[in-house]
């Protein structure tokens, strides 16, 4: 009974998060402007958005590692019942790595070329666990390597990062981020710019690690295919705001927000589409340094009406666990354009 209640609790809740950047001359870029979402324990949340939509800034805000001149202007980040924005930096240091860890996009630059894999893995463990011995660290290192599907760990530990392929390095990096048994893992574009097989290799390793440890994961990417295969629920960002969030199937089959619909229409599929041309979203994302009036998607939206240009829509409930920030949610069926079926 206790176990099941623990599974339903929210491990992370982000409420009205705002992260701004001072870009000089009194200008402020509102990279993240009121983002709300929650993540249940042992679940995977996918954040989708185009470049510049504030996905990465959101993840960095959760870790509290937003670089100058950026700052968190408001909101709450409740992690395991504790507001991360209120605790002192000392406490935060303990949370980073031990409770929440982050996987970066580029596996090559995440390693020190002069250190062996063993030194890398041990360093993380020994820095955070006070009083741990080296042999404990090594034992744990081998365990996490096993977890991501590396079975000849003892051999791997002796080698240097340059001796591995990019995919393998990313695998070791995933292992490294799991070594302290964190409760939440944030993967920021873990496979972008890698080939198909490498991508599948890494996603497989992540899935395996998730199954074995029950860790909660936030994955950030612009690849619809990856998130829809990997996550339990999805969250779409546009111009620093959340426009739609829901369990995976709802969002993929019956999206409500015109932006989500536009995205799904414009993704090339492995299956045949009904028309040869893709329906692309006209125009470009807004300039974030300018003040936005009304819905930020309205200039590109084919369904926009007068109200859309004046009032900013709030995130409203449109179905069970399905939220959408649109004045006029659209009823759209993916099957109209594609041969996808639920």
């Amino acid at each position: 009974m206790k176990e099941s209640s623990k599974h339903n609790e929210n491990i992370l809740e982000v409420r009205d998060l705002k992260t701004y950047f001072n870009v000089g001359e009194g200008k402020v870029v509102k990279a993240v402007e009121g983002v709300n979402f929650s993540l249940k324990r042992s679940k995977i949340l996918g954040i989708i958005g185009e470049s510049g939509s504030g996905k990465s800034v959101t993840s960095r805000s959760i870790m509290r590692i937003v670089d100058q001149p950026g700052y968190i202007a408001g909101g709450e980040i409740i992690f395991e019942g504790q507001n991360l924005l209120e605790i002192p930096e000392r406490e935060m240091e303990k949370i980073r790595g031990q409770k929440i860890s982050l996987i970066f996009q580029n596996p090559t630059t995440s390693f020190n070329p002069f250190m062996t894999m063993e030194q890398h893995l041990k360093e993380v463990y020994l820095t955070h666990k006070k009083g741990a011995t080296k042999s404990e660290a090594r034992k744990r290192a081998l365990e996490v390597l096993e977890m991501v599907g590396i079975h000849n760990g003892a051999e791997i530990l002796k080698k240097y990062p340059c001796e591995f392929s990019a995919g393998f390095r990313q695998r070791v990096f995933i292992a490294m981020s799991m070594i302290l048994e964190p409760d939440l893992l944030i993967a920021d574009e873990p496979t972008t710019s890698l080939g198909i097989t490498l991508q599948a290799e890494i996603m497989e390793a992540l899935c395996e690690a998730q199954r074995k440890t029950g860790i909660s994961i936030i994955i950030i990417t612009h690849d619809f295919g990856v998130v829809s295969q990997f996550s339990d629920s999805l969250f779409v960002m546009y111009a620093g705001k959340c426009v739609e969030s829901s369990p995976k199937k709802d969002l993929l089959l019956k999206p409500k927000h015109p932006y989500t619909i536009g995205l799904i229409r414009s993704v090339p599929l492995l299956e045949e589409r009904k028309s040869k041309r893709l329906k692309s979203i006209p125009g470009f994302p807004p300039n974030m340094a300018e003040e936005q009036i009304g819905c930020s998607f309205s200039p590109r939206c084919e369904f926009a009406r007068e109200k859309c240009f004046k009032d900013t829509p709030e995130l409203k409930k449109v179905g069970e666990e399905h939220f959408c920030a649109c004045h006029y949610p659209v009823d759209y069926n993916v099957e109209d354009d594609t041969k996808l079926e639920g």
């Binding site: 599948a200 996603m203 899935c207 295919g225 829809s228 990997f230 995976k248 993704v267 492995l270 996808l340």
Partner: peptide, 15 residues
């Protein structure tokens, strides 16, 4: 190995 939306809808794992 190629990820796709339809595989996601049908809950196919990465392979």
């Amino acid at each position: 190995a190629a990820p796709s939306i339809s595989k996601g809808i049908n809950n196919e794992p990465f392979h």
